[in-house]
């Protein structure tokens, strides 16, 4: 992992813009993704997805087409190759098509949007993700989310159950625990008698994105997505929760925030969740008094240690503090299991 220092504009371990865009587009349940670039660029992601999906038996392998730009296209232009790949994508009758450019496509100056505009009845989003010319992984991820948000206003509003629409925004689709986190949020929201109306865009069909403009609450995966949500075509002053809840008190605050946003009294829900947290902590009562060491500036971990009566000391046993951090009370329970094994 040794290499020259990175210029400040290039995140060193961030990965490629293309990978970020693909992590979003490939999560759309009925989507087909066309990568406008060399086949190798797509292979890298296919390989990465395979690794991620090995832990999810039966999970769908996303359809990811490459127009396989070669030396000829680099010289003469690759728009014809993209048009052929789009025909191929339409043949598969997807809910939507994502066209994602690569640094090769950007360097030779192909106009992906113009080619995509010629596609017929299938909704198409174009995500400019010119490899390192376009930033890093997170830039690609955010560009793709914005592209699907722009698409959402062109889609009919699906039938909803009449209750408030809570939208999860920007789940980390390559994260091992992504679905567990969503399950935990679903459990918490259930305490308020509401459900998750939209997962934007994880494993959701394109038609469901039509719910985004009428969302009543946006729950962002992480605060860094705020600039993306600022550009969403939602109603003015649509409330949002800036990130998935990390830690014991943050989980209770999540319930209070959701209740406030939706005009629901969350008192009973918070009391029930606090009792649940006490029961979870009681299961790990044996850890009380244990000396552990934690990285600095991880308040949720320090909060858990304090709640359990553990002693945080630099000479203590180092315990795992994962990044991204565990979500909700369920996440705390899982991390305590890991701490217990370490101790």
């Amino acid at each position: 992992m040794i290499s020259s220092p990175s210029p400040s504009s290039t995140p060193r371990s961030d990965g490629c813009t293309l990978a970020g865009a693909l992590s979003v587009a490939s999560a759309v349940a009925d989507g087909v993704t066309v990568v406008h670039g060399p086949a190798g660029c797509s292979h890298h992601h296919v390989s990465l997805l395979l690794t991620a999906l090995l832990d999810r038996p039966g999970a769908r392998l996303p359809v990811l087409l490459s127009d396989d730009l070669g030396e000829e296209e680099v010289i003469f232009g690759g728009e014809d190759a993209l048009a052929v790949a789009l025909d191929e994508a339409v043949e598969r009758s997807p809910g939507s098509i994502a066209v994602i450019s690569t640094c090769v496509a950007e360097a030779i100056g192909d106009d992906c949007a113009a080619v995509a505009a010629r596609v017929g009845p299938v909704p198409v989003v174009v995500v400019p993700a010119g490899g390192f010319l376009g930033g890093g992984f997170h830039d690609g991820e955010r560009a793709a989310l914005e592209a699907y948000a722009d698409l959402s206003v062109c889609l009919p509003v699906p039938d909803a159950d009449g209750g408030p629409v809570v939208a999860l925004v920007g789940e980390k689709n390559l994260e091992y625990e992504a679905d567990s986190h969503a399950d935990e949020l679903g459990r918490l929201l259930d305490r308020l008698d509401i459900g998750i109306g939209l997962r934007f865009v994880r494993e959701a069909p394109t038609a469901s994105f039509g719910l985004l403009p009428r969302a009543d609450l946006l729950v962002l995966r992480e605060p860094g997505l705020a600039p993306v949500a600022d550009r969403f075509p939602v109603r003015p002053l649509t409330p949002r929760i800036p990130g998935f809840p990390i830690g014991l008190s943050a989980t209770l605050e999540f319930l209070r925030s959701a209740g406030r946003a939706l005009g629901i009294d969350a008192t009973a829900a918070c009391e029930a969740e606090a009792a649940h947290q006490d029961a979870v902590l009681a299961r790990f009562g044996g850890l009380s008094g244990a000396r552990i060491s934690l990285p600095s500036a991880v308040p949720w971990a320090a909060e858990v240690a304090t709640a359990l009566g553990m002693v945080v000391h630099p000479a203590g046993v180092p315990v795992p503090v994962p990044e991204p951090a565990p979500v909700g009370t369920a996440g705390i329970a899982r991390i305590l299991s890991r701490w217990g094994r370490r101790l």
Partner: peptide
């Protein structure tokens, strides 16, 4: 689905560059 119409169009390429 079915194999690509265009032999140069790959659905999930399996070979590194």
């Amino acid at each position: 689905g079915a194999a690509a119409l265009n032999p140069r169009c790959h659905a999930g390429p399996l070979v590194p560059c």
